[in-house]
Simulated scan of single mutants.
Amino acid sequence: MLPKFLDRLTPRVYPRTRLLTAALVWSAVGFLLTAKGLWISRQEPAHLFLVAIAAGLGMGLVKSRLVFDKVARKIILNIEKKPRPVCLGGLFSVRNWALILVMSFFGRTLGAISMNTSLKTGIYVMVGSGLALSSLLMWKAWKKPLPFPL
């Protein structure tokens, strides 16, 4: 148990708020990564720009369905199985927080290394669009009535 003074400072929220926060985080990160991908290739010739975006969106759809949807469903189940107010930091599991740190590290590394701009664009758009698409599951879970009374 936490010491009493730390327990009082813990931001406790209901499942609906945690679902909203998760949906906002995934949507915001998805849109920001996609925007970064578009921004870094703004100087590329139009045909390379469009190919990179189309490839990134196509792979993002696949990544969303095969990877991110499974993670989103696990997060939703994790949030819904804790009906009482719990710490907002418990929004994601320890494994999810570790995955977030690893993905952040890879994103920073990708931004720092020298590689083809169209390839970087495709990668940013793939991850960003995949996250944004899978965030729809969280938005749907947030919108539906809760299976338990508050």
Rank of each mutant, 00 (worst) to 15 (best):
V13I: 15
V25C: 11
K144S: 13
A55M: 06
P3K: 13
F68I: 14
G122R: 09
L110Q: 06
G128E: 04
W142R: 12
S93P: 02
I75A: 06
D69A: 11
K120N: 09
F5H: 08
L77M: 14
L66G: 04
M138K: 05
A112T: 08
L32I: 12
G37D: 00
F105G: 13
K4G: 14
L19V: 03
K4Q: 12
R8S: 10
L119H: 09
A22L: 02
R73G: 02
I76L: 07
R95A: 12
L61Y: 08
M59E: 04
I100R: 01
W39P: 01
P15Y: 03
R18I: 02
V125H: 02
A55T: 07
M138V: 06
G128Y: 05
K144C: 05
W97V: 05
F148A: 07
V86E: 10
T121G: 13
T10P: 00
A72E: 00
V13W: 00
I75Y: 01
R12C: 02
Y14M: 09
P145A: 14
S135V: 05
F49Y: 15
M1V: 15
P15Q: 07
E44Y: 04
M126Y: 02
I53F: 07
L146M: 09
I40S: 06
L91I: 11
L99Y: 15
S64M: 08
S104V: 11
A52C: 13
G89F: 15
R65K: 15
